[in-house]
Design a binder for these strands. Structure first.
Ligand code: DGT
Ligand code: MG
Ligand code: MG
Length: 539
DNA sequence: GCCGTTTTCGGCCCGACTGTTTTCAGTCG
């Protein structure tokens, strides 16, 4: 039972309770627990096995603690099973239709007993739905459209895949008369590996005119809502863009609000309440008096905190760290001294030249074929070239090359490329075995974003071994890998094992992949000392 | 359902946009 599995059950429970009409704060408690577990770097199955007191976690009390234990030990959640009898699971699909929330779904279910999208479509088309109070023609049209495209359920976009359109939108908005600042906020600014939409903040005195201009952007396919200070559109590729426009006195508060995360915002607002203050996107208020909000620093200062970098704003301990003055000094692009994995191929000379130009001090040229060793050794550059071999780890943890064949390489990588579904203990032993012979474990979880969630291993055990034996964990920086991910990076840092960020460049442009890995390293609280390719002479 | 150096009950972040609302509930950020 993985964290993701547990989180899914709790989240489903929350949705069903919501539709049932339960107390919204109870629903939130389930959602919070689900999110806590989903985002946690700790393995909950292990925590339960070790008898860890779950109620020590924020938002987990007596009941949820027992529920989590039940889920982990039995694989089932009896409360959820009972709930499903009352509230059919099929109703969950309806939540992913824009404009349909728990209340309206309950209304529909109570009136017609509908439990599927097909039935919903039928009732929307034959005019039955109109009979419900609050269901006007516009909403019915929205529902029909939603059934057809199920927009909200669409997969999330890779961060790197929205970079270009984000920049294009920034330019487009900056071009508008009177616009002073454009910030891409939301999960994009927090550098999350995937983004559900783009959240754009515009600062302009004449902020009310911005929405109109925004919705005329050439790639806008549909205007979902348009008001004086906020609007939402969908682009031709289905990407949602939320725009918020305010005047510059609210810049800090608005940017803070729109950057999130939601959990972080709520935590900050709770702190403010305890100080007798109110925080919203316009400022910080004491009574009716506005006391701060021009910059983000002001916002944090008003609640007694130092500035928190966007990448850390996930309510994963950053607020406590800011209070205690123990925030990490996050690694930056400038700290990266080299790239320890670029591919040995026909572009290698250009890649090396580009690496020199970037100011790198070393580069690791990697092949999967031991016969390339001499050719790699004969490459010339003014920077240090490491020869690297990527070995394939077989089912039993053996490498595809003998000790003799790889002994002259500067760096030995090991990569798992098959048998992804082995049981946790077997998979863990496989990795531990391979680690004996390699320096760096490539993309440790073998995951592919939006495709494969990754192998099941006892990662903490791997980390303990790595720390003790100076083995390094890779952060594969390719846009759809980012493996280790942010929470695993955080755990690795906490244990004290080292990591490298590798670009896997096959041409000079792909050296830029480093940036994507760096984003995740920063989200994982990594400092310069945690990342091997930010020190001189790593090998 | 969770939480508490004031609290074990009574709060729980706060605001914008939409529709059919004649004053606000629902949904969303
Ligand atoms: N205070 C507060 N802020 C919110 C709430 N919902 C969203 N926000 C803020 C914080 C979010 O980061 C920001 C943008 O909202 P999004 O729904 O786009 O979320 P975000 O970009 O974080 O993640 P995403 O990748 O889009 O799913 O708006 C809320 O309920 N309360
Ligand atoms: Mg967003
Ligand atoms: Mg958004």
């Amino acid at each position: 039972m993985t964290n993701a599995d547990i989180a899914k059950m709790l989240s489903l429970t929350a949705d069903l309770l919501d539709i049932k009409g339960e107390n919204p704060f109870k629903v939130r408690a389930y959602r919070n627990a689900a999110r806590l577990i989903e985002n946690s770097s700790k393995d909950f199955e292990k925590l339960v096995r070790e008898g860890f007191d779950l109620t020590r976690l924020p938002g987990i009390g007596h009941d949820l603690s027992e529920y989590i234990k039940e889920i982990v030990t039995t694989g089932k959640f009896s409360k959820l099973e009972e709930l499903k009898k009352e509230v059919p699971e099929g109703l969950i699909d309806m939540l992913s239709i824009e404009g349909l929330g728990p209340k309206r779904i309950k209304q529909i279910y109570d009136a017609f007993g509908i439990t599927s999208l097909d039935e919903l479509k039928k009732y929307a088309e034959n005019g039955e739905l109109d009979k419900l109070p609050g269901f006007g023609p516009t909403l019915i049209q929205k529902i029909l459209k939603g059934v057809k495209q199920l927009k909200k359920a669409g997969i999330r976009f890779l961060w790197a895949d929205v970079e270009d359109v984000a920049e294009d939108l920034r330019k487009y908005l900056m071009d508008f008369e009177g616009v002073e600042i454009v910030e891409i906020a939301g999960s994009y600014r927090r550098r999350k590996e995937t983004v559900g939409d783009l959240d754009i903040l515009v600062i302009a005195d004449d902020y009310m005119k911005v929405s109109e201009y925004f919705t005329k952007y050439k790639r806008v396919k549909e205007v979902y809502s348009k008001g004086l200070t906020r609007s939402t559109v969908f682009l031709d590729n289905g990407l949602q863009i939320d725009l918020r426009a305010v005047t510059k006195e609210s810049y800090g508060s608005a940017l803070h609000y729109f950057t999130g995360s939601k959990d972080h915002n709520i935590a900050i607002r709770k702190m403010a309440i305890e100080l007798g203050l109110k925080v919203n996107e316009y400022g910080i208020y004491k009574g009716t008096k506005r006391i701060a909000g021009k910059t983000e620093e002001e916002v944090y200062k008003a609640v007694g905190l130092t500035y928190i970098e966007p990448e850390l704003r996930e309510n994963r301990g950053e607020i406590e760290a800011a209070r205690n003055g123990t925030l990490p000094k996050l690694i930056t692009l400038n700290d990266i001294k080299g790239d320890l994995k670029v591919y040995f191929n026909e572009n290698i000379k250009e890649i090396i030249k580009a690496a020199e130009k970037r100011g790198y001090e070393f580069i690791g040229v990697c092949t999967r074929n031991v016969k390339d060793l001499e050719k790699i050794k004969s490459l010339k550059s003014k920077i240090k070239i490491y020869s690297a071999i990527e070995c394939v780890i077989d089912k039993d943890g053996e490498l595809n090359y003998s000790d003799e064949e790889i002994k002259n390489f500067d760096i030995v990588y090991g990569s798992i490329e098959d048998n992804f579904d082995l049981d946790r203990d077997i998979q863990t032993d496989r990795i531990l075995k391979a680690l004996e012979k390699i320096n760096i474990l490539s993309h440790p979880f073998c995951r592919k974003i939006n495709e494969f969630n990754g192998i099941d291993i006892d990662f903490e055990k791997v980390l303990e071994y790595a720390k003790k034996n100076n083995k390094i964990l890779e952060i594969d920086a390719r846009r759809n890998r980012l493996d280790l991910d942010d929470s695993k990076i955080k755990l690795t840092k906490e244990v004290g094992a080292k990591m490298v960020i590798n670009s896997y460049a096959t041409n000079e442009d792909e050296l830029n992949n480093i940036k994507y890995g760096l984003n995740q390293a920063r989200r994982g609280w990594a400092e310069r000392k945690d990342i091997k390719n930010s020190v001189k002479n790593p090998f």
